[in-house]
Amino acid sequence: MLDACAELLDEVGYDGLSTTRIAERADVAIGSVYQFFPDKRAISQALTRRNVELFVARVGRRFISEEYGGWWDAVDAIIDEYVEMHRSVPGFKSLRFGDAVDLNLLDAGTDNNTVIAGRLRGLLLKEFGMADSERLDTSILVAVEGGDAVLKLAFRRDPDGDPEIIAEAKTLVRSYLSRQLRDFNASASRAAPGARSGS
């Protein structure tokens, strides 16, 4: 049913989606759809969650299988996975991480990009040993919001993503996070015991 929903989203969009169409495409009785999903929003929500899990898994696999010079290369890999999913995963370009339907589709109390930022934060903390802090949380959220906005522009300009704009998205996110982490590390050094005495 989720696969059928994804295919239909690409063909008719969210407005043209219906539980009846999903049942017909999945070749199941409409009652089978309602057994799991009360309406098209619920099935779109389930598909969005699957997209998030797939995205995080794909990024995680890249982190394991590829060598990075630092977190900045990981940022490029994260953006590359988003772009590849937009191009190749059915339903993703229509739904992305749910923002095309509802900014709170993933979690009623938290907007979708905050959920995504939290997942990416976990990956970066695990792989690159960044110091956990509220400031890091805010910085990653702002980077996700900024990168997301520029990537949307890339796909508005070109259905496959304008390469120049995608490159600019990488530059934007890397530059912003570099400055934030540099400022954070400088503040941490000044606050450390003995920092003024040079010990």
Results as ranks from 00 to 15, higher is better:
K170P: 00
K126D: 12
E127T: 15
G161A: 08
V142R: 10
D158C: 03
L120N: 04
A149P: 09
D158Y: 07
D160K: 13
I166V: 15
L120A: 06
V150R: 10
D158S: 11
D107H: 09
T114S: 15
T138L: 14
L153A: 10
A100G: 10
V173Y: 00
L124I: 15
L136W: 10
L125I: 07
S139R: 01
G109S: 10
G109H: 12
V144P: 09
K126M: 11
L103A: 13
T138N: 08
V142Q: 06
I140W: 06
K126P: 00
V144N: 09
V142K: 04
L136E: 10
Y176V: 02
N113D: 11
S175E: 11
Y176W: 10
K170M: 01
D99N: 11
A100H: 11
V150H: 03
M130K: 11
I140Y: 03
D107R: 11
I140Q: 05
I166C: 03
L124Y: 14
L120W: 01
T114M: 13
I116T: 08
A108S: 15
S139F: 00
I166A: 04
L124T: 14
A131W: 13
D137T: 07
D107Y: 04
D107I: 05
D158M: 07
L103E: 12
S139K: 00
R121N: 01
L177G: 03
D148T: 14
M130R: 13
I116W: 07
N104G: 12
G118L: 05
V173S: 02
D148E: 11
L103Q: 12
I166Q: 03
G109N: 11
R157N: 07
L153I: 13
E168V: 00
V173I: 10
A131R: 14
A108K: 15
K126C: 07
N104V: 13
P163T: 05
D102V: 12
A131Q: 14
A117W: 03
N112R: 06
K152L: 15
G118Q: 04
L123T: 12
V144W: 04
A143G: 05
L123P: 08
D148G: 11
E168R: 04
I165S: 03
V142I: 08
G122C: 11
E127C: 12
I166H: 03
L120T: 03
L124N: 10
S139Q: 05
A100M: 09
Y176P: 08
R156E: 15
K170W: 06
N113Q: 14
R156Q: 15
L172I: 14
P159I: 09
G122Q: 10
L153P: 03
R121H: 09
D99M: 04
P159M: 03
A167R: 06
G147I: 01
G122V: 10
D160E: 14
F155M: 03
V101H: 05
R121W: 06
E168I: 00
V101D: 01
G146I: 04
E127I: 13
E145A: 07
A100F: 09
E127H: 15
L151V: 10
G146L: 06
L123G: 06
L103I: 04
T114I: 02
L106C: 06
